[in-house]
Design a protein around this nucleic acid. Structure first.
Lengths: 194, 194, 194, 194
DNA sequence: TATGAATGAGCATTCATTCAT
DNA sequence: GATGAATGAATGCTCATTCAT
């Protein structure tokens, strides 16, 4: 890679980082390309030299972010045993980047189909781990027999709901923190064998 | 009601129907008042003769649909129906206006505060009925003791999740139809005492 | 005049009275025909049955008001002797309907030419009396010799200026009250022979 | 300044000149941003690239013209000129942009508070210079002792009055020209000690 | 005569994208 | 490769006037 290409790559990275910052604070839908350029410290037009349009920029950001998130999930899974620990650690992970995940939860239905598919694919990988953990509990008699995929849809749906309407549920601070205990105990008590 | 008043009422209805059509196909946020007027076959300004602003127009549509649901649920509650029947009927009612409710689920986080408040207020009225039905079940030993508000957040959150991502879950047809049985049986089996 | 004509005349009066009230509180330029109709308790369209357009309505109001004002000025002149008394009484008269005169001062340049001419004609009648009073003072050696028309233009111009920018000079209450003493003493001391 | 910057500056000037032309012929209140853009031969949106909003555009025009006057008066004051010379020069400067100042005089009461404040602030700076000049005349026994602020309100009020009703006072040509001599000599003779 | 529903041109401002420099 | 000035379609809402009832 020659000097020019390196410079270009560097600018591209600067744009992506700036876009992510804007994205977290106001969401991608409400962020203008001009704001991103300003945040990145480059000219407005330069942005379109690196990305053909706003949509492609968001696609690229998600390509990167999703890989990061996947890595975190993998390490999450490796360190966790049992559904409770898995869920607790997952909530912790969400909490660490709550603003990012809240934006995604809110805007997901409006992203290009391809992005939506990729995000939900990553989620499905996670679901598999949750699925296995629950099935093990059921097999050992700790949990009742249940439609696990549907139960997980409830779980992820609920989390998504809390995140997407975060400002409704908490005026400030973390929704996850506010609800994690009740969510955990309710989910556990529901699936627990009695 | 004289001819004048009838004509006015008719125009109002024409606007509401046209707005609902636009709203379902493109969402409230992307529908312009000018488009609605065009779809309704009236002058742009006429719309504002019947509704003071875009938000009020949409509030009117929401209120009508949500009141319809609330009324039916209330009448069901008066017949002292259990949570299963309540939920089944609720899903049926959602299904009848599924495209509309899918749009609401998707766009809710982006609506002006006033509209969001109204929608969530109506939802909270519904929740009260569900709440009572579950508590009666718990009192009579049919259901386990549980954090009812949290359980309802799970329920409504899940439905909201399914609706908002409808195109992901079904390529065509109804998400509610696709999931209602599993949702019903899973929710029931989870809270059922054993 | 038959019953129908009487009714029409009555409605016309109601409109004129309502228009004047609106006019005083917000100015004619900012008052909509719809507001006037509302204030008058008649249908919006009815207004255009009595006046071909908004401009004609304002012309009519001024035709009436100016006659009233003229009558007041005449009685003012008859009761006053000397420029000081004349001016003091004039300021009193303005003060009694300060809001009306402030609106006129502000909006005068925007009225139809005909209205402007009539208003200024009434003012010129008043000026003649001031003129005579000053000339008598000069003749008796009480005042210095001066270009009386120009001095009066200063006087009326100043009053007009204070009225038209009333909200700048006083946050509430009367501009006339605030400035009358200084205006009177300054004007007197300026023209007084020394 | 490179070519890019020069071009931008040129566009800005074109907008300002076009805006001033529109403004003089129809007033600020009745001139639309679209008209200005058309007159300037640029796209409507381009206007907002150079000025954040209509008010700022007009403030810029006002500031330029008013600063020009203030600067000339200040330089005159530094040469320790008397009130007569000051007033004569002021009238001369007004005359050079008479149509513009006539519009301002007429529309001032209707401008947004911020614009009004700015205009009246500049006027108050001017008043200070006039104030000092008069006080010096009084100190040296050339003028009678008088309420200087009130006298200046009379002076500026009169000029404002003449400008705002210009079409009444002259069918064509300059009001300032028509009245400057009488205004000057009357004002001088009024305040002159005898 | 009175009504009031309907009209539709008009307005300030935004923003993704282009292209000459 | 980078710049940033220019574009122009698009938006929610107002209001004097008309005309069918």
């Amino acid at each position: 890679m020659n000097k020019r290409q390196m410079q270009k790559q560097k600018t591209r990275d600067v744009i992506l980082k700036a876009a992510k910052r804007c994205f977290i604070s106001r969401g991608f839908l409400d962020t203008t390309t001009s704001e991103i350029a300003g945040e990145a410290g480059i000219a407005h037009g330069t942005l379109f030299l690196h990305f053909p349009n706003k949509a492609q920029l968001i696609v690229t950001i998600f390509d990167m972010e999703l890989d990061l998130i996947t890595a975190q999930i993998v390490s999450l899974v490796e360190q966790s045993s049992g559904i409770q620990q898995l869920l607790a650690r997952y909530l912790l992970l969400l909490r660490e980047q709550e603003d990012l995940f809240a934006v995604i939860a809110r805007e997901l239905p409006f992203y290009p189909a391809e992005i939506r598919r990729r995000i939900l694919f990553k989620e499905s990988l996670l679901r598999q781990h949750f699925h296995r953990a629950i099935e093990q509990g059921t097999a050992s008699g700790k949990f009742i027999a249940l439609d696990v995929p549907m139960a997980l849809t409830c779980l992820f749906g609920t989390i998504n709901y809390l995140l997407s309407l975060k400002p409704i549920f908490v005026s400030e601070g973390s929704v996850i923190v506010k609800f994690q205990e009740r969510l955990l105990s309710t989910f556990t008590s529901l699936i627990k064998a009695r």
